[in-house]
Design a protein around this nucleic acid. Sequence first.
DNA 1: TACGGATCATTGAAAAAGTCAACGATTGTT
DNA 2: AACAATCGTTGACTTTTTCAATGATCCGTA
Lengths: 152, 152
Amino acid sequence: MGPQSTEVETPRLAAAKIGSDVGLLLAKLHATGSLLNNKALADYGLRERSFSVLTLACSGLEPTQRELADFLSLDPSQVVSLVDDLEHRGLVKRAQGKQDRRAKIIVSTAEGRRIHNKARAGLEVCEQTQLAALTEDENVQLRALLKKALWG
Amino acid sequence: MGPQSTEVETPRLAAAKIGSDVGLLLAKLHATGSLLNNKALADYGLRERSFSVLTLACSGLEPTQRELADFLSLDPSQVVSLVDDLEHRGLVKRAQGKQDRRAKIIVSTAEGRRIHNKARAGLEVCEQTQLAALTEDENVQLRALLKKALWG
DNA sequence: TACGGATCATTGAAAAAGTCAACGATTGTT
DNA sequence: AACAATCGTTGACTTTTTCAATGATCCGTA
């Protein structure tokens, strides 16, 4: 991402038609968001990705790695290293799949849940910062639209 | 990105709280969108990035490379290679900055505009596909919210 | 029940993207 | 005139992404 961390003013180029291109808008908002999020998560030795995995491990949904890959739009091999990392740090465990012994279920440890709670609090501040220009209603609306676009 | 190209059903994991995490939603929608867009642009030898640069070069706004970097959230060195590529293919030209002789202004060639028009048509179909679950109103709304979040 | 094709996690290699520091040329400031 | 800052560029380096191959396991079907 660009070196600029605080970009307050409306860029001149936003006037172009491409300033309404959904792909670009998503890329840009995602880029600035990731920057903030990763900065906030660094205190806990996490990044956006590992935080997502940890969150789902803490969710009680007992996701398999394949599910994580699909849901997070990652290659299965990327999930392997994310889980490896979290496991080495004792935040997460691999358990054998229940119906399917090929699959590995990712579950959080107590320490994992502890870290996750702290990190989540930090992230909420981040998100608020990123969407500061939106009212509370718009914030909710944006979430709803993104969810609907993704899975109807 | 994940190997799944057509993901119709709501994933089980969307139930988790993280299913409402803005960062994740943006990442996911951006990921699936990029996949589609790059596939569509491949016919013209373009990718999302080079298409964006080409679009701005065609816009008449005469952007400098620094402006491109800022607007597209890229490192200046990345812009160099994007412009190099487009220039070698005769779609774009570097012109000397008007007030500032350090800066280079990126402008499209006739061929560049020709390719751009074709590519843009392909992308519009893409975008429609990606946001198929949204009504026309919601589509507009989403764009507006993203823009507001980015630059108020 | 046994075979065959598909799926899961994993590995490793290759390609692409991102990050960063340094440089010459130019600018604006003091 | 001197100085720091900015622009584009280069090159090195790290990280991320992508892809094919593998052993283990599952499932459908003969």
